[in-house]
């Protein structure tokens, strides 16, 4: 983990509709020295955020927000050039084909899982 301390701090968008899980991810990211945008817990708030002046170095997205798939918003984020990580209880099988090349971190995940994912996106 010491290597991570020297990494630059990123701003990471978190989209997760369950408070307990969102709070845990927020804590993990802060422990890793990153700042959190959100957690955004509804698609309506996500839409508002995307419509505004928005910047993130990466986004960690739950695939299902209150029963709605995240994919249309994931595509918008991808179009903005934001690297995506999907977090899913369905595993990799639940990701739409055109987004299937983005990494998936299966739930439940640990701090190490998240750190490794971010390392894959931004190698040291």
């Amino acid at each position: 983990m010491n290597a991570d301390m020297t990494r630059k701090s990123m701003s990471v968008l978190v989209v997760e509709d369950e408070s307990l899980i969102a709070m845990n991810l927020e804590m993990i990211l802060e422990d890793l020295g990153h700042s959190v945008i959100g957690p955004v817990m509804t698609l309506r708030n996500l839409e508002k955020l995307l419509d505004g002046d928005f910047h993130a170095d990466a986004a960690i997205l739950d695939v299902n927000i209150a029963g709605e798939p995240i994919f249309p918003y994931a595509r918008r984020l991808a179009d903005l050039g934001v690297p995506l990580i999907f977090a899913s209880g369905y595993g990799a099988s639940g990701i739409r084909d055109d987004l299937a090349h983005y990494p998936v971190v299966p739930k439940p995940y640990t701090e190490l899982d998240i750190a490794r994912m971010l390392d894959r996106i931004f190698p040291a």
Binding site: E18, L20, M27, G89, Y90
Partner: peptide, 21 residues
């Protein structure tokens, strides 16, 4: 079964959060 699996995984993630926090 897929839905149940998803729900179990989410619940485990909630439990994990309760414990660590």
């Amino acid at each position: 079964l897929a839905e149940l699996n998803h729900r179990v995984k989410n619940t485990l993630a909630s439990v994990q959060s309760i414990v660590s926090q």
